[in-house]
Computed example of a mutant assay.
Amino acid sequence: MITYKSLHHVSLNVTDLEKAKEFYGKTLCLKEIERPDFGFPGAWYEIEGQQLHLILDPTSQTIRQDKHLSSREGHFALRVESYHDTLRWLKENDVETLEKPYSKSGFAQIFCADPDGNLIELNVDQNDFS
Results as ranks from 00 to 15, higher is better:
N13K: 13
G117A: 02
F40C: 04
F23K: 03
T59A: 14
K26W: 00
H68D: 11
K31D: 14
M1A: 13
V124C: 01
P41K: 14
E34T: 15
S60F: 15
Q126V: 12
A108V: 05
I55V: 15
F40R: 11
H53N: 12
E99V: 02
F111S: 08
V80D: 02
T59H: 13
L69N: 02
W89H: 15
K67L: 02
T27D: 00
L52S: 04
N123S: 15
S103E: 03
S105W: 05
I2E: 07
K104H: 14
Q61G: 13
P115F: 04
S60E: 06
I47L: 11
L122C: 13
I2C: 02
L122N: 06
L7G: 09
G117S: 04
I110G: 01
E48F: 03
A113D: 00
K67E: 00
H84E: 14
M1R: 13
N127P: 06
H9R: 08
G25F: 03
N13T: 09
T62A: 10
K100V: 07
F23T: 03
Y83F: 15
D37V: 08
P101H: 05
H53G: 06
L17C: 11
I2L: 10
L52V: 14
N13D: 06
Q50N: 15
L98D: 00
I2Q: 06
L122Y: 06
E32W: 04
S11E: 10
E32G: 09
E81D: 15
L12A: 08
F111D: 06
R79Q: 14
R35C: 09
V80H: 02
H9P: 05
K104V: 11
A113C: 08
L28Y: 09
E92L: 13
T86H: 03
L30D: 10
S70C: 09
D57Q: 12
L56I: 05
K21Y: 12
I2W: 07
Q61Y: 13
P101R: 10
E96P: 07
S70W: 05
H8R: 15
K21G: 03
V14D: 06
A113N: 01
G39S: 04
N13H: 14
A20G: 08
Q109K: 07
C29G: 11
Y24W: 14
H84R: 11
P115T: 02
Q65I: 09
D66Q: 05
A108M: 05
D16Q: 11
E121L: 02
T27I: 14
N127W: 08
W44P: 01
H75P: 04
E99N: 05
F111M: 10
N123D: 14
L7S: 06
D125H: 10
V95H: 00
D37L: 14
V124H: 02
L122P: 05
W44K: 06
F129R: 04
L17G: 10
E32C: 07
R64I: 10
L87C: 01
T27L: 06
K91W: 05
V10M: 10
L119H: 00
